[in-house]
Amino acid sequence: MLIGQITDIHLGFDPDNPAEFNRKRLDVVLRHLCEPHNRPDLLLVTGDLVDRGDAESYRRLRNALSACPFPVWPCLGNHDMRANFIAQFPDIPVAEGFVQYEIDTGPLRFLILDTLEEGRHGGSFCETRAAWLAARLTEKTDISTVIVMHHPPVEVGIDWMNTHPEEEWVLRFARTIAGKPQVKGVICGHLHRPIVAAWNGTTVTICPSTAPQVALDLAPIDPDKPDNRPMIVADPPAYALHRWNGRELVSHFDTADEHVMLAKYDASMQPLVRALMAERPD
């Protein structure tokens, strides 16, 4: 099974511009994903769907995603607004006022979480949301499960974007999934970078954004002393493909720009392919 992921679209950053930069970046990623080569079975869209939470940007996003020839399943990030999202995406399930729901594909189960606290940049995961997740994790314990949410629960070292490991919502989330071996991974966005980390006995995978990326700078930052470091960079729009092989979730990251081909599978490369595959057990 092949799972696509895009994140941090920030549509509407340039409001009233139908040809805005972030829309162009989204469209080129969707074109890549819709091509037959590496086309996913479903697409996860992991938050910050729009930049200002406005209804018009959600309408434009819905139109952009409607061309996808596979199911599309979104969750909310800190730039989103629940009421406007729900109005434009009425088919997405809601649980007790939060955009939380289950996707059961047969070989793999996804639990989509809502980590939005409107007005706060970082994540949130209250008792109501935790109780919903706990109830779902007591069901179908024999089915491999992936948790999908916007905010990563792991500290990654980019100081101004970090999640502190002692934040209340992180501790609550960690308690909720503790001792649940069916959880095979946590898929997130928010950081605008490709990152993979071991965390509390599982793997957290963070997808780079379709919008511009966050610069990689692991030096401490002083909120009282601007130092002119780069913060946002115009690296190409990106996406992830997660392959479920029946045992593990294997994640790949790619950009949607042009790749210069240095070799192709022709007769000259056939001996190498045969030799590599001959080394594997039957």
Rank of each mutant, 00 (worst) to 15 (best):
L44K: 01
H259E: 05
K264C: 13
V146T: 07
N17D: 15
V94L: 08
R175D: 00
P212R: 12
G157L: 00
H150M: 03
T7P: 00
D224M: 07
L111C: 06
P71H: 04
N63Y: 12
V156R: 14
H79W: 13
L33C: 06
A83I: 04
I195V: 14
L249F: 01
P152G: 09
P223H: 03
V183G: 03
R59G: 14
P208N: 11
G53F: 12
H150I: 02
V72M: 06
I147T: 11
C126T: 11
R136F: 05
L216T: 12
F253Y: 15
P236N: 10
Q88D: 08
L191N: 13
V99C: 07
S144C: 11
S57Q: 01
R247F: 03
P36V: 07
E20M: 00
Y265H: 12
Q100N: 09
S209C: 01
A134S: 09
V148L: 05
V50G: 01
N162A: 09
V186D: 04
P181T: 02
R175C: 05
M161P: 10
L2V: 14
E117G: 14
P18C: 03
T138N: 14
G201S: 06
L30I: 02
G12F: 07
V50Y: 13
E118I: 07
G77K: 03
E139M: 08
Y101I: 06
N78Q: 05
R229A: 02
M269V: 08
F110N: 04
Q5V: 06
V250E: 12
C75N: 09
D114R: 15
L108F: 08
P36Y: 03
D217K: 01
I103W: 04
C188H: 05
M161Y: 05
L276V: 05
C68Q: 04
G47R: 05
P36M: 08
A87M: 01
T210Y: 06
W169C: 02
K184H: 03
C68T: 04
M261C: 13
D14A: 06
D8R: 07
P69L: 08
D104T: 04
L61A: 06
D91M: 07
H151E: 01
H164S: 13
W199M: 13
V148C: 05
E102D: 09
L137C: 04
E96V: 03
L76Y: 15
